[in-house]
């Protein structure tokens, strides 16, 4: 069963067609790799699916429901969480608070609960804090980090914090945009564990990544984009050895030589 299907999904920016007529299916429970050279439209795909950009045409079907061009927060609450290629944390929020932001809907409290500091709110605070700490644990952020500012963390931890914030939505689909970029070896290995751990919890993942080592290690299925179009798809080893894919990645280099 597919958790996400796009049908003829197209996104143009003026003259640039960043996503062109994409039919991409993501199998529930799987890790799908979305690869392709720089500028091939991977981030744009995540942006359109998560509602950050409006699709020019085509549809996005999530769990059988048409969610094309829904508001971002609605898509997030429906169960599609994402991270950003360039990290976007909240500048003046601590690590714990950052994760709690995405728990907002789970509070089930109203403004009056805050004003009158009701028992209901106190219970929700305790419950949500506990859950946020669990999520931070999963991505390897311990007690000592709870009250640090998110942006003051080392680079790899900031990426982990973004993943924890995304997981705080209790998503069924997680979109990761180049999570390994700029990570050192140790962080990289840990990220791999996080991704497999998340999959084990039944969360479907779309992984955009340039580090082929990571893609090879975790993905079940691979989709290759080039110039906004789907070039091919299949198991990673098939894609990797496909001459068209090799050309897409290397073609420019050869031309330059």
């Amino acid at each position: 069963m597919n958790i996400l299907e796009t049908k003829g999904l197209t996104k143009s920016f003026g003259g640039v067609t960043a996503n062109s007529d994409l039919d991409i299916n993501i199998e529930k429970g799987s890790i799908t790799g979305l690869i392709g050279p720089n500028g091939s439209g991977k981030t744009t795909f995540i942006n359109v699916v998560s509602g950050v950009h409006k699709a020019t045409s085509g549809r996005v079907i999530f769990n059988g429901q048409d969610i094309t061009n829904f508001d971002k927060h609605k898509i997030a609450r429906a169960g599609i969480a994402r991270t950003f290629q360039t990290i976007r944390l909240f500048e003046r929020l601590s690590v714990l608070e950052t994760v709690l932001v995405a728990r907002h809907a789970s509070f089930g409290a109203k403004i009056w609960d805050a004003v009158f500091s009701t028992p209901k709110l106190k219970m929700a605070n305790a419950r949500e804090e506990a859950r946020a700490k669990e999520l931070l644990e999963i991505v390897g952020l311990g007690k000592q980090h709870y009250h640090q500012m998110g942006n003051s963390l080392p680079y790899g931890y900031r990426r982990s914090l973004e993943i924890a914030r995304a997981l705080a939505l209790e998503p069924s689909l997680l979109l990761l945009d180049e999570p390994a970029a700029g990570m050192n070896r140790e962080e990289f290995n840990f990220l791999q564990d996080i991704i497999l751990n998340v999959k084990q919890q039944g969360i479907t993942i779309l992984l955009v990544e340039h580090t082929m080592e990571l893609v090879e290690a975790v993905v079940d299925h691979c989709v290759v984009l080039n110039y906004g179009q789907k070039l091919t798809e299949g198991p990673f080893c098939d894609c990797e050895s496909d001459p068209r894919v090799i050309e897409a990645y290397l073609g420019k280099e050869e031309a330059e030589c």
Partner: peptide, 28 residues
């Protein structure tokens, strides 16, 4: 009471990064 609650957190998230807040389920 409001700013120290989940509502204040949503305020501050919206202030610091509106897009990231919305992608975290906040109806700004």
């Amino acid at each position: 009471r409001i700013t120290n609650s989940f509502i204040g957190r949503a305020f501050m998230a919206m202030r610091d990064d509106e897009l990231a807040a919305e992608c975290s389920g906040i109806n700004t």
